[in-house]
Simulated assay, not measured.
Amino acid sequence: MIVVNTEHIAGMEIEKHLGIVSGNTVQAKHIGKDIVGGLRGLVGGKMKEYEEMFNEARDIAEKEMISQAENLGADAIVNVRYTSSSIMSGSSEVMVYGTAVKLKE
């Protein structure tokens, strides 16, 4: 599956737009990592506990979006966009969406 954040794929022609596909998830770290992350916030430094949480959430959301596109028979997803928000301390929602397309052969 080709996944791009542009409207077109270089060297390829879109035959048909199949519709918008999306994926989202809300992730939270367990209390131990949340405490460590909170302490890092007080003293400064890279907050790897939250980076891991965000990366896991992004991967889950992407897989969900790609699965939707595959179910539609898509060859690619174009114009992909990400959004995120904090639901509560220690948790994050990630949403990804784009347009599933069929490419000309």
Rank of each mutant, 00 (worst) to 15 (best):
A57Q: 07
G98N: 05
E93D: 03
E62R: 10
K33T: 08
R81S: 12
A61R: 01
D59K: 13
V36E: 10
H17F: 08
L42A: 11
D75K: 02
L18S: 02
A100G: 06
M53H: 02
I60G: 03
Q27C: 09
E51H: 12
L103K: 01
E93T: 07
G45C: 05
G38S: 10
H8K: 15
D59T: 09
E15C: 06
E7S: 10
I35P: 01
D34F: 07
N5Q: 14
V94A: 03
A61T: 06
G37I: 07
A76M: 04
Y97Q: 12
I35M: 13
H30M: 12
E93A: 06
M53F: 04
N24Y: 09
V101Y: 00
G45H: 09
S84R: 11
E93G: 07
L18P: 02
G44L: 02
L103V: 01
R40N: 10
V94I: 15
G19R: 03
A57C: 08
L72R: 05
V3I: 11
N71E: 11
S22F: 07
M65W: 01
V80S: 02
E93C: 07
V78M: 01
E105I: 10
E7G: 07
S89I: 06
E13D: 11
V21T: 03
S91Q: 05
K16P: 04
A10V: 14
A69P: 00
I66T: 09
A28F: 03
L39V: 14
